[in-house]
Amino acid sequence: MSNSEETIPIKDEYDIVAARSAGKTISSKCGFGLVDQTRISTAISELARNILVYAVTGTVYIREVDATGKHGIEVVAEDHGPGIVNLDLAMTDGHTTGGGLGAGLPGTKRLMDEFEIVTAVGEGTTVTVRKWV
C-alpha cells in the first residue's frame, strides 16, 4: 500500500477546511485514534490560518511518512510571505502579532510530536510538523 499524499493550496477559509479534511483522511489511514486526529486537524487549521493571516497565500502538503521503526503523518505549511523577523519571539508563549487568541506556533508545537521551522525575512516561511502513531 503506497503512502498517501495531498497538496492543498491555501487562499481562503474553505481551503483550510479542505486541508483539515485531507489531514483527517490521511491520519485516519495512518491509524491515529479520534483524539489524535483532532489534534492533527487543529494543528493544520493553525498552520493554514497563519498562512492566510501573515502571507495571504501558500501551500499545505500532507503525507504519510515512515521513519525507522515508526509510522506517522507529516504536514508542511509553506508560504512566500514576509517571513518572521523575530523567530524566538514568535515561538514564545503568549506572543501574538495577529491580534487576539490564536494557538499560533507554540500551540501547534504542543499538539504535534515534531516541529521544525525555516524562515527568511522577505522570502517566506516553511513549517514542518510530524506526529507518530
Binding site: V35, T38, T42, D93, G94, A103, L111
Partner: peptide
C-alpha cells in the same frame, strides 16, 4: 473533541498572555 482540543489550546495561550 474538536471543541475541547481547540479550547485547551486557546486557553493555554490565554494563560501565557495574561502572565506575560
Amino acid at each position: 473533541f474538536n471543541l475541547m482540543v481547540a479550547y485547551a489550546t486557546a486557553y493555554h495561550d490565554y494563560i501565557a498572555m495574561t502572565e506575560e
